[in-house]
Structure formats: C-alpha cells, structure tokens
Amino acid sequence: MAVTVSIPTILRTHTGGEKSVEAKGSTVGEVIDDLDSRHSGIAGRLVNNGSLHRFVNIYVDDEDIRFAGGLNAPVGENSNVTILPAVAGG
C-alpha cells in the first residue's frame, strides 16, 4: 500500500530534491518511519520526543493530523500525506 508524501523545499535535501516520494504505513508514524529508512534523518526533522514537532504540520489528505490522532492518525490506501513547516515567527 503506497502513500504519496509531499516534501517541502527545506526537507528536499533528504530526498535528493524530490518534491514527492512514496512511502508505506497505516499510520502517519509508520509512514515517517518508512520514509526515514530510505531518507535518513527526515524523521528527526518532524518528530521530537515521540510527538510531532510544534512547528511542523502534517496533513492526511485535507486533515491536519493534530485534529486526527497525531502520529497515530490513520493513513488510508492512496492517501496523500503533505508535510508543511509552519510559517511563523516573532
């Protein structure tokens, strides 16, 4: 079961410049682990102490996973997972 993951500009150094990559998993956490097995270091940019980094947003299709179970959010067949760093500052 393949999921398409869109990668933001700042993380494309981990994917050889690719804007989107395929990954496997039935939850967002599993998808991230699978990504990290081929794109080393990417998990560390997304997850901090077992939870999603405060200033990273991950969406399954149109849903922000913060409102759908966090890293346990289910990922269905043919889902699109989108990673976007927050646009924020002080």
């Binding site: 947003n57 149109d62 913060r66 976007l84 927050a86 646009v87 924020a88 500052g89 002080g90």
Partner: peptide, 18 residues
C-alpha cells in the same frame, strides 16, 4: 496567533495556500 509579538499562519490556510 493574533499577537503583537508572534505570527503564525493557520494550518488549514497554510495547506490551501501551498
């Protein structure tokens, strides 16, 4: 954030924007 010292795009707005 509606703050005088911080800004952040709403996460839904951010997805639609990109």
């Amino acid at each position: 954030a509606r703050s005088p010292t911080f800004y952040e795009f709403d996460s839904g707005d951010l997805l639609r924007l990109y």
